[in-house]
Nucleic acid binder design. Structure first.
Lengths: 253, 253
DNA sequence: TATCTTTACGTCAAAAATACATAAAGCATC
DNA sequence: GATGCTTTATGTATTTTTGACGTAAAGATA
């Protein structure tokens, strides 16, 4: 038994030592503004190259906590809804030398740096509450509309695509309330669903279904300053919405 | 710019060096036999403690490839359907000292070993095709029914629960064909859906819906040796089923 | 041949999804 | 202040899907 323990320990250590990896997080921060889904991007200093916000996970730090920390630094938000959605761990994720060149780093860094495994998170945040803040490596932090994304660094175009695909599929289970302000109009909510789903919904049927689900409270106020008939303002019913999200019972087939 | 590059490189390296982690994979291998969902478990040598099959990811190895490799060694299967479903990366995932003791390893190993981040995969495999094989650390590899799982090592009970929850939610998008043999009867398919969903389905309505989806081809054969009326054998239609899975269009609300 | 249990499949009612039309509010303009 | 424009708000009729339920046929056993 002694022998067994010894050899097991040895084997274990050996396997584990082989399994040391650089682990990073990439965050797709979704916002919603003027009827469009936006994502938060960073521009690398002295270049015109953009990438997702991200960072490294520290030793003994929970990976979820790391994602929260990274995003807090970029957005100024205290409470962030975050969702793991994919592990990007292909042996070759992107052309490293090309990438280092685009961001003006010495190419030999790419030899030093082994492949990094990245954990994909997406966040749902309230556009207006965010104060975009660049970090040490970047000189701009801005919202981009999903429709006109530039050619991003690393494999970040793919990461955004996978994030969106996941959000779409999991939509009934995701608290989209985080994407909207405290109060909002019914057409705004409809447009949000439409842009995530990527297809138009019939307003009358949308109203009916949302009303029936009971997730909304209608306030007495109406949105002022609209060019035409001013719509009612709604808020999510905190006593109903979480349960509907947990059950995934509000869906548009 | 030189200075900038220098400091960026420095910053980058520093952050990255902090972000070195032990990365492992834990696999929940789902099989289906005699109307029950089973998972493959390993018993640690010289103990009566069980855990999920797992392993470490090697340097420069794709994480998906690592999962395939690990499972090939345990199951003997060449083709395995695998699905990432969660990252287990809490700062404290389980009581390490207690765990090392249960598997008879020196407790000081737990000091040497930092927390390990684990990538959760589940596999859908055909029960009868699997040849369970223990590894160096284990002396048994066996199927366990989901209903009577023992108290597993590490946080593996939780991992199985999360895997099942994910499988259930994603069921319309998952190719459950992998859980069944080449041909099978309609009641068998129904029982599979019932056990994954955790609730009974009406046989007549199930028939109707599956028939309407077109995913099955009925063969001319019937299953012999059944005590009563012998049921027809079906196979998945390879021209239809993948598309239905991609669209997630076969669901039981 | 009668009995038993499972398979196979049809019908009907309820519910949900879909298509569609019209009135009312608010602003702008005349 | 009346008219026109555009958006909001909501009702109804039709089709499709879901859900409940009954019954005949097959195969083994006695």
């Amino acid at each position: 038994m002694k022998d067994f323990n010894h050899s097991v320990t040895h084997y274990f250590k050996q396997e584990a030592e082989q399994s040391i990896h650089y682990l990073s997080i990439d965050c797709v921060v979704f916002g919603f503004h003027e009827g469009r889904i936006r994502v938060l991007l960073l521009r690398w200093k002295g270049t015109s190259e953009w990438s997702l916000p991200g960072g490294f996970i520290r030793k003994a730090e929970s990976v979820d906590a790391a994602a929260v920390r990274i995003l807090r630094e970029r957005t100024g938000l205290q409470q962030i809804f975050l969702q793991q959605f994919h592990i990007f761990g292909d042996a070759v994720r992107y052309n490293q030398e090309d990438t280092w060149q685009r961001i003006g780093l010495p190419v030999d860094l790419s030899k030093w740096s082994e492949r990094t495994i990245s954990l994909g998170y997406y966040a749902l945040v309230e556009y207006a509450e965010v104060t975009p803040r660049p970090d040490l490596l970047t000189d701009a932090c801005d919202w981009w509309s999903l429709e006109d994304l530039p050619n991003l660094l690393f494999d970040h175009n793919r990461i955004i695509a996978v994030a969106l695909e996941n959000l779409r599929r999991q939509l009934p289970y995701q608290p989209v309330s985080h994407l909207l302000p405290e109060t909002f109009t019914m057409p705004e909510l409809q447009r949000l669903y439409e842009t995530i789903l990527g297809r138009p919904l019939d307003a009358r049927n949308f109203y009916k279904k949302v009303q029936a689900s009971g997730i909304l409270q209608r306030t007495d106020e109406r949105r002022k300053g609209t060019p035409y008939k001013s719509p009612y303002l709604y808020r999510f019913d905190p006593g109903v919405y979480p349960e509907v999200v947990r059950e995934g019972s509000l869906s548009f087939p």
